[in-house]
Each structure stands twice: as C-alpha cells, then as structure tokens.
Design a protein around this nucleic acid. Structure first.
Length: 823
RNA sequence: GCGGGAGUGGCGGAAUUGGUAGACGCGCUGGAUUUAGGUUCCAGUGCCUUCGGGUGUGGGGGUUCGAGUCCCCCCUUCCGCACCA
C-alpha cells in the first residue's frame, strides 16, 4: 500500500469534495431528527462577480460556528442564498448589454461553485434567490399585508435623490450626503413614493434591544439606539397672528420657554411657504428657498457654516408670557424632524445663538450658568437654576420641565411628547431589477391591491426596455405589462411601475430558508416555532443599522400578524472585520486587490480558511500583508503528517495511553471548546497547534507512535481541525482508519479527571517581584505553602535577613512576602 | 462638535474574578538532515546587563501586598452620528 507522503491540498480537495456531495453531511431538513435544532446564519451575498476575500473571511468564521455545533450534536441549519436583486445587475446590463437576470444567475452559479470548493457547511437544499418569482411573490404578499394594516402607504414628499443612479434613496442609504452605492452627491426631489411605517415601531425597536444586550455587539446596539434617536420633551402650541391654527413645535427643553426670543420654521417646509405668502417677505423667502433647494446635503453638512435665513414679517405668540416672537425661515431647521418649526432659545442652544448673533436678535438667559452666552458666543445647555422665568424661577431643569408642561397642559397649549429621529422607510425605487410593487392605479378606484391569487406580479422581460436611468421606472415602458384591468372595477388601469428597495428582500429571507419552496405561504409558523429565532447571525458591521433594523421591524410586524411568536429575529450577532491590504480596503483602483481564487490556488482552501480564522479576533480587520497563509499551510502539513505516524488501530483503548499526553490532549480540547464558544477562534487554533506540537514530541521522543494516547491526541486534532480545515481533517481522519465524514465524528468528550493537575507552579514574590517558583500540590494548605516558600533558599537570600512585614498567601498559586519598605 | 472603541516584542496577536506579561504563529539567529535550494527536525529570540540583576503592556498620577486588567488626567488612533431643536 503506497501512502502519499507529501501534504497536497489540491489532491485532497479533489478527493473529498465528491464524497461530501454524496454524503451531504449538513442537510438539516429531517423533521424526525432527534438532535436539538440550532440555526446558524451567514448574511447572504450579493452576486456581483465571484466571491472575494471578504466573503472568505465571513464564511470561514460562520463555518467554524456551524461545524462546531454539528460536532456538539445539534441539528444545525446553515443555509445560504443570494440577495439577487439590485443595481449592479442593471448597471452591467446598461454597460454591456447583458440581461440583468442572465448576469445575476451566472454570477450566482460562479459563487455557488466557489462556496462548494471553499467547503462551506451549507445545506444546499435550502438555497434561495430573491430574484426568483417564487421568492419575490412573498415580498409582494408581505407588502399587501402591510398595506392592509396601514403600514405601507404612499405620500408626497421631498425625498433623497441620487442624480447618478436616477432613483430615490432611503435616509439610511445616504452616507455623508452621498449615495451609498455610487458616491454621487444626493439632492432632494419632491415625489410621491411608497413608505413603510417603521416609525410606528420605533418604541418597540428600542425597547426590545434589552433582549439583545450582551448577545449583540454593544456597538451595534448603540448605533441602532442612536439611529432611532428617541428624545423626550414637549409639544408647544404657538398662536400666529392671522392664522387659524396654532403652530406646534417640538422641544426637549420646554423649561427654557421664557428665554425664547424668536421662532424658526424650516425653509423647505410647506409651513414656511404658507407663512411667507402675501407678506412683504414673500419674494425674499422664495429666493432663499430656491437657494436652499440648490444646496445639496453635502453643503449642509459643513459644520461651521454661517446661519442664514429670512425674516417672514410675522410673529408667533409665546404661550407662557404672550411675547411676540419674530418668525424666520431658515435651513438650519429640518422640515422632517419634529414639526419642522422650533422655538429659538439663543442663550441655551448653540444653533439658535449662532442665528441670533447673525441676525442681531436679543439673547435672554433663563438658566443660570458660569458664563454669559452673549459674551462667549457659547450657549449654556446644562442644568441650573431658572431665572427670568416667572413661576419657574428658582427651579432646576427637571422640576422646571415638569412644571411648565403641567401649566401648558392646563392651558391647552401643549403636552409632553416623545420624538424619534427615525423616519418612515421609503421603499420605492425607479429601477427595473427589483420586486414590482403589487398595486394597480385606477382612475376611479385609486390604489387597488393586486389580489393575492394573482401573485406574483412578475417582472416583464428586460428585452426592449430602456434600463438607462431617467428618473422614472423603466417598467413604465412595458406597455403590455403596465396596462391592466382594474381588479376592483374592471376598468382600464395601470400597474405601479416602481420596484421595491432590495432591503425589503433581505428583511425576512431568514424565514424563507425554513422552507424555501413552500408554495402556500411565505413560511409556515410551525417551521418558525422550530427554528426561530436565528441562534447565531454572522455578517459585516456595514449592516449594523439598515438591514438589522429592517429585519427586526419585519419580525415585529409578522409577530403582530400572528405568524411569529418571537419578537426579535437574531438572538446572537457576530460582526466580522474586513480583509484589507497594507492598511486600506482592497480595491482595483488602489491596486491592492488580492484575488481569492489566486490565494486558494497557491495555498489551498484550508490554508486560506485557517489564515482567516487564526489572524486574530473575528471582529478585527485582517491585513493580508500581516498574516501568513504559507505558515498556515506549514502547520496543516505538520498536523497531517501526524495522522500517518499513528500505528495503533482505530478503537484502541485509550485509557491505557501515556497519561501525560492524555492530560495535554484533554486540556487542549477543553480550552479549544471554551475558546470557540466565546468566539476566540484564533485561540482555539492556537490550542490545537499546541496539541500538535505535543503529539509530535510524543511520537518522536516520548511515548512513541504506538501509544494509544497518540491516537487519541491526533484524532482530537483531526476533529478540532474539521471546523477550520475540513479537507485536511477529512484526510487525516481517513489516514487514521476512519470512514467519512469527520464533520460528524462528534466533538471529543473531555475527561474531567484528566484536567486535574498533579502539581501546580507556585510563584513566590518578594515585594511583588518573582523570586522563586515552586512545584506544589494543588491541595497544599496556606500554612504549608507559606512555610515552604519562606524556607526556599532563593527566598531566604532575597530576604537578606529582613523580617517579613506581611505574607500574602493565595494557595496554591502565589505567595507574596512583603518586607518593610526600603528607607 | 457629540457618542463609542482601541493602544502589549520587529509583526499578527495571547493573558477567568486584579495574582508567573508576551500563549500560539510569522519573521529572525544558530544547529542537524539534504549534493544544493526547498522541506523537515531541534534550540534560541521583549529591552538593558558588569550575568548579581535591572527594566518592561501609549504618557502621567492614584487605589492595592500585588495593576496590561480598577479609578482620574493627558496623548495617539480607529469607528459611528453629525444643524435631530
């Protein structure tokens, strides 16, 4: 029998991949499966080209977790699919004349092949693509359910507009005033668009985060909290002369109401236009408003930009003292936050102060402070005693807020209020490659939902459609598709031509995985009871706000619909870092792109996976220049060689093996388990390396290759390595005389009795400095240990005849002898 | 500006509740094997040292018998939000 003597990654990849295809060790569909269920989910990829280094890291980490729980005896569902709708497909279509669908499915095939080669432990029978009608049909169904509940609605408003992509963007997709996708400067445009009423869930999205505390990264929870941006304060009504209705403002500091000296409305709000109409300021206002509209968000972002505005020649009445406050229109007040109008208190709000200084408006201090805003130009926003505030004088902030709200409520001029930064989610997109919105517009019936039994509303073929962005959906040109009979009255009507934001698709895909081909429902509640919530979600921190917030929102909506008992979709979240090169993100233009296929070719799949896992903590970025796939390969070869050295037979009684090596083995298993469960995968690998080193030594210069303890150690190595380096592990397993699959071998059971150490190293310090090390029994008493330590020659010498002031004994690990401090 | 992390050898990184700092690996040095290179195996590797020891986790202070770990100030750096009333 001729054994291969060289570790050849290419060879073992070719050898085992077909075997795994046949055995399908990661199928999770059997309902009779007695193993407890666990749902491990990797964020699904967008199919733009082949997999890259970032995918390789993310999927290597997710795979360690999934494979670990399989080894621990769980029925692990670890599915994968493709987030397949979206702009890149369309852009490729425009640039190269390809069909978005064909382009997408080709890329999916490429990525799928790469994932198989990469040996991800996915259940290949649960694959879904969001661009398949059998998937997006349920997008449409969900949309209609939300429409029914008033959660999907259309409104007319100024929206974020990307002039490059010629489509609207959700607030969340505008990053620093630029389009998240193409980096173009975002402008505003007034359009009628579909929204989801996520703001109705703001309080629950906030409150339920308590469930996630400690399970999600603190950073993500914080980002979500900030994004939701709950604040408490009051709504206050201001009468405006010549207007029937009062104007309401939202403020977090109603206690400073006596310090208000002017009033500001958002320049781009309807209210501003209305107030300006017919005044002598009308022309000036119009001019100013047009300037503001011209200015992009990026201009608005400049922090130290001077305050601008127009006096509207109108006045609002301060409800607490009847003072007449001049009304200004300015762009420093946002139309879509609060009520789009503010009471300005220059002494205690920096923005108001800046404006007051620019427009020479009086500043009235109503909260005592050490500094004078008038002189310093710095508004004082801290707590303090109230002055010049009528009944509030002498009160602190909290008391004053309570008192003024009580007074306002009694007068019918205000009440306490909660406000959120979160806005409703704009989901309409004027693009082709997405889920058609299942609504028909009828002149006589209005917005008519497409009847459920007519779903899906499938996309018309792209052939013949001009996909070039032009501000309206390309679907509008598919006349045969657009013109339909009204489902309500039968008269001529038109389909809605917008498609859904692809974040809609990814907001519930984790539920579709439960039964991706279910034709009767989006998912069955029974399946959800069995599998949900996702036990472990793995993905990039880039989705810390958007995707995760939307998925949480959908889960709550489905809960309210009675389809889910849970209220949070993801119990645990791990955000892996990025793979960078020379300190910066890889990109073609930077010329620092490392191609995954090249790395896999030169080092092998297992070496690349091991490199990803061993590089450091999973949350940290990996600089590919700092790590060593060649080193990883060296280690794998070293481990693999061990499997050929073992001469005992499978099933040999290990209890007779070398006790020293056995102790090392069991300690390594124990520590690696703990490391995996606490996401310290790099440490788990280090422990495995330690065991390999110990086994090597045992074979070469210790108990020898025939000792059963060597087999025990090497089998443990194979199983531990199966999480990270599945090919190498499978080949080792085979060389050790076992049948595949090592992935199902079961995690080695730790014999607790072997973890008990016979001796412990005790450190003896003098004045906190280590002077001696003693090998002592773990059961040694404090008295014995102290006596032992003090009689140790090196300690006697270190004491130099000095009398110990105190001796601290922490048996069995430490003795600290404290001498009188030196003069 | 506001909020949140992070600073440990030449490098990536280890270090339950405060108790041996630098696990594991990369790199480097030396040795063995090899015709040579590569591979493999062994040994060494924080810094200084008069070889007794001294010193050391961004800087400074504090608590403690004892601090990488806890507290205060500062520096550097990364990330998130950014006129949110």
């Amino acid at each position: 029998m001729s054994e291969p003597v060289e570790y050849d990654p290419e060879l073992i990849q070719e050898k085992w991949l077909p075997v795994w295809d046949e055995k399908a060790p990661f199928r999770s569909g059997n309902l009779e499966d007695p193993r407890p269920a666990k749902y491990v989910l990797d964020m699904f990829p967008y199919p733009s080209g082949d997999l890259h280094m970032g995918h390789a890291e993310a999927y290597a980490l997710g795979d360690v977790i999934a494979r670990y729980w399989v080894q621990r005896g769980f029925n692990v569902m670890h599915p994968i699919g493709w987030d397949a709708f979206g702009l890149p497909a369309e852009n490729a279509a425009i640039k190269r004349g390809e069909d978005p669908a064909a382009w997408t499915y080709e890329n999916i095939a490429t990525q799928k092949a790469s994932m198989r080669r990469y040996a991800c432990s996915f259940d290949w029978e649960r694959v879904l693509n969001t661009c398949d009608p059998e998937y997006y049909r349920w997008n449409q169904w969900l949309f209609l359910k939300m429409h029914e509940r008033g959660l999907a609605y259309r409104k007319d408003s100024a929206v974020n507009w990307c002039p490059q992509d010629q489509t609207v963007l959700a607030n969340e997709q505008v990053v620093g005033g630029r389009c998240e996708r193409c980096d173009a400067v975002v402008t505003k445009k007034k359009l009628t668009q579909w929204y989801l009423r996520i703001t109705e869930y703001a309080d629950r999205l906030l409150a339920d985060m308590d469930q996630l505390e400690g399970q999600w990264p603190d950073k993500v929870l914080l980002m979500q909290r900030n994004w939701i941006g709950r604040s408490t304060g009051a709504h206050v009504d201001f009468e405006v002369e010549g207007r029937d209705e009062p104007v309401t403002v939202y403020t977090t500091r109603p206690d400073t109401l006596y310090g208000s000296t002017f009033f500001v409305v958002a320049a781009d709000s309807d209210l501003a236009a209305e107030l300006a109409a017919g005044t002598q300021a009308e022309e000036a206002f119009r001019q100013y408003r047009d300037e503001v509209k011209q200015a992009s968000d990026i201009d608005r972002l400049a922090t130290d930009r001077p305050k601008t505005g127009v006096f509207l020649h109108r006045y609002a009445t301060n409800p607490v003292n009847g003072e007449q406050l001049p009304i200004y229109a300015s762009d420093y007040v946002l139309a879509d936050y609060g009520t789009g109008a503010v009471m300005a208190v220059p002494a205690h709000d920096q923005r108001d102060l800046d404006f007051a200084k620019a427009f020479d408006i009086p500043i009235k201090v109503v909260v005592e402070a050490d500094t004078d805003p008038q002189e310093t130009g710095v508004a004082t926003a801290d707590d303090g005693l109230h002055v010049n505030s009528g009944p509030l004088d002498g009160m602190g902030k909290d008391d004053a807020i309570a008192a003024v709200i009580e007074q306002l409520a009694a007068d019918g001029k205000g009440q306490s209020a909660v406000n959120y930064r979160l806005r409703d989610w704009l989901i309409s997109r004027q693009r082709y490659w997405g889920t058609p919105i299942p609504i028909v517009h009828c002149d006589s019936c209005g917005e008519v939902p497409v009847p459920e039994d007519e779903l899906p509303v499938t996309l018309p073929p792209s052939e013949g459609l001009d996909l070039q962005p032009k501000g309206t959906s390309p679907l509008g040109a598919a006349t045969d598709w657009v013109n339909v009979d009204c489902p309500s009255c039968g008269g001529p009507a038109k389909r809605d031509t917008d498609t859904m934001d692809t974040f809609f698709d990814s907001s519930w895909y984790f539920l579709r995985f439960l039964n991706p081909h279910n034709e009767d429902a989006a998912f069955s509640p029974e399946d959800a009871e069995r599998w949900m919530p996702v036990d472990q979600y793995v993905g990039g921190v880039t989705h810390a706000i958007l995707h995760l917030l939307y998925a949480r929102f959908f889960t709550k909506v489905l809960h309210d619909m009675g389809l889910l008992s849970i209220t949070e979709p993801f119990s645990k979240l791990l955000n892996q870092g990025m793979v960078v090169m020379d300190g910066s993100a890889m990109s073609k233009s930077r010329g620092n792109l490392v191609r995954l296929s090249d790395e896999l070719g030169s080092h092998g799949v297992d070496s690349v996976r091991l490199t990803m896992v061993f590089a450091g903590p999973p949350e940290d970025d990996i600089d590919w220049n700092d790590v060593s796939p060649a080193g990883a390969k060296k280690f794998l070869a070293r481990a693999w060689r061990l499997s050929g050295d073992v001469t005992s037979q499978p099933g040999v009684d290990v209890s007779t093996g070398d006790p020293q090596l056995r102790a090392v083995t069991h300690k390594a298993i124990h520590e690696a388990s703990q490391a995996v469960e606490s996401f310290r995968f790099n440490v788990a690998v280090a422990k495995t390396m330690g065991l390999v080193n110990a086994a090597r030594k045992a074979v070469d210069s210790g108990c020898g290759p025939a000792d059963p303890a060597v087999r025990e150690a090497v089998e443990a190595v194979a199983i531990m390595l199966s999480l990270v380096a599945p090919y190498t592990a499978e080949d080792m397993w085979s060389r050790l005389g076992h049948e595949p699959c090592v992935a199902l071998a079961g995690w080695p059971v730790v014999d607790e009795s072997l973890l008990v150490e016979e001796t412990v190293t005790c450190v003896v310090q003098v004045n906190g400095k280590v002077r001696a090390r003693l090998e002592v029994s773990p059961e040694i008493t404090e008295q014995e240990l102290q006596a032992h330590a003090l009689s140790e020659p090196s300690i006697v010498q270190a004491l130099d005849g000095g009398e110990p002031l105190k001796v601290i004994v922490r048996a069995p690990k430490l003795v600290n002898v404290v001498l009188a401090p030196l003069a």
